Amino acid sequence: VPQRAWTVEQLRSEQLPKKDIIKFLQEHGSDSFLAEHKLLGNIKNVAKTANKDHLVTAYNHLFETKRFK
């Protein structure tokens, strides 16, 4: 089981690129989880459509539901 890579403050910070969060989610989330949160596909394309709040919610949801690969 992966550990949380970032704190809530870090997740919301401008310093953390959306692409980093997407990469983490794609590496650790199950396909059904990723599909549900519309996070499947090319990281660049996902970054265009997903806002930061959406990614933070998905990140927290992944750990709450433990839907890891």
Rank of each mutant, 00 (worst) to 15 (best):
D53L: 08
H28R: 05
K66H: 10
A58C: 08
Q15R: 09
D53K: 06
I43T: 08
D53W: 08
T65F: 14
H61E: 15
Q3K: 13
K38C: 14
N45P: 03
V56C: 06
G29M: 01
T57V: 14
F33A: 00
T65N: 11
P17G: 09
K66V: 05
D20M: 11
K69D: 05
I43L: 11
A35I: 13
E27R: 08
K44C: 15
G41H: 05
F24R: 01
N60Y: 06
E14T: 13
V46H: 05
F33E: 00
E14F: 07
F68G: 02
V8F: 07
Q3T: 12
L16C: 13
K48E: 15
D20H: 09
E9K: 05
E9T: 04
G41F: 03
K66S: 11
S30F: 02
N51G: 11
P2S: 04
N51D: 14
K66M: 14
P2N: 04
F24I: 02
H28V: 08
E9W: 02
E27Y: 04
V8T: 14
H37Y: 14
E36M: 10
Q26P: 00
R4I: 05
G29W: 01
P17Q: 13
F63I: 03
T7V: 04
E36N: 06
K19P: 08
E36L: 09
L62N: 00
Q26G: 02
L62I: 05
F33P: 00
T49C: 13
Q26C: 05
K18M: 07
F33Y: 06
R67V: 06
E14C: 09
E9Q: 06
H54G: 11
T65V: 05
L55N: 00
I21E: 01
G29D: 00
N42Y: 13
E9M: 04
G41L: 03
S32L: 08
A5P: 15
F24A: 05
F68W: 06
A5V: 14
L25W: 00
A50Y: 08
L25D: 01
A35L: 12
K38F: 11
D31K: 10
V56F: 04
H37Q: 08
K38Y: 10
R4H: 08
D20C: 12
R12I: 10
R12D: 06
N42E: 15
H61P: 00
I22K: 01
K19H: 12
A50N: 08
A35H: 13
N42S: 12
D31N: 15
I21S: 01
N42G: 10
A35S: 10
R12N: 11
T65P: 02
T65H: 15
I43E: 07
L39H: 00
E36K: 06
Q26A: 04
H61V: 12
H28F: 11
L39M: 07
A58Q: 02
R67T: 07
D20Q: 08
T7W: 04
I22E: 01
A47T: 12
Q10M: 10
R67F: 05
I21A: 01
F68K: 02
P17F: 10
V46P: 03
D20F: 06
K38N: 11
N45I: 15
A47R: 14
R12S: 08
E27N: 10
P17T: 11
L34F: 01
L39E: 00
L34N: 04
N60P: 01
T49P: 02
L34H: 01
T49H: 13
K52R: 15
W6Y: 05
F24Q: 03
K38P: 01
G41R: 06
R4P: 14
K38R: 10
A5L: 15
T57Y: 15
S32A: 12
K69M: 05
Q15N: 12
K44Y: 15
N42A: 13
G29A: 15
Q10H: 06
K19I: 14
F33G: 00
K69R: 14
H54I: 09
L34C: 05
I22S: 00
H54R: 13
S13T: 04
I43S: 07
V1T: 12
L39S: 00
R4M: 06
I21P: 00
F68Q: 02
D20T: 14
H28P: 01
N42K: 14
Q26N: 04
E9V: 05
D31T: 13
S32K: 08
A47Y: 08
D20I: 11
R12P: 03
W6H: 05
Q3I: 13
F63T: 02
V8I: 10
W6P: 05
K69H: 07
A50S: 11
H61Q: 13
I43V: 12
Y59A: 02
K44Q: 13
T7P: 06
Y59C: 02
R12L: 15
P17W: 04
V8C: 12
D31M: 13
T7E: 06
F24P: 00
G29K: 00
A50E: 06
T49V: 10
K66N: 10
Q15S: 13
E27V: 07
L40Y: 10
L62P: 01
R4F: 08
N45V: 14
H28W: 15
K23G: 10
W6E: 04
Q26S: 04
D31V: 11
K48I: 12
K18I: 10
F63G: 01
F68M: 02
P17H: 15
N45Q: 14
K66F: 09
K19M: 13
K18E: 08
G29H: 01
K19Y: 14
L40V: 12
F63W: 07
R12K: 12
Q10R: 03
A58N: 01
T65E: 11
V56M: 05
Q15H: 10
L55E: 00
H61S: 15
K18D: 07
Q10V: 06
W6I: 03
K66W: 06
H61R: 12
V1C: 13
L39A: 02
L55G: 00
L39T: 01
I22F: 04
T7M: 03
K48M: 15
P2V: 08
A58V: 06
V8M: 09
P2C: 10
S32F: 07
V8A: 11
V1M: 12
A47F: 08
L11V: 04
K66Y: 07
K38W: 09
G41M: 04
E14H: 12
F63K: 02
F63C: 02
Q10F: 07
E9C: 06
Q15I: 06
F33D: 00
K48P: 05
V56K: 02
R12Q: 14
F24E: 04
E14R: 14
Q26Y: 06
W6F: 06
K52L: 07
T49F: 14
N42L: 11
H54P: 02
I21Y: 01
V56E: 06
V8D: 15
F33T: 00
L25H: 00
Y59I: 03
A50G: 05
A58L: 06
T57L: 13
T65Q: 11
K23Q: 11
K38L: 09
T57D: 15
I43K: 07
L55D: 00
E36R: 06
N42W: 10
E36F: 08
N45D: 15
Q10L: 05
K66R: 10
E27F: 06
Q26M: 08
E64M: 09
F68R: 01
F33I: 02
T57W: 15
G29R: 00
Q10K: 04
K38Q: 14
I22M: 04
K19W: 11
K23H: 09
V8R: 02
K23W: 07
V1I: 13
K23P: 01
R67W: 06
L34R: 03
P2R: 04
K52N: 05
N60A: 08
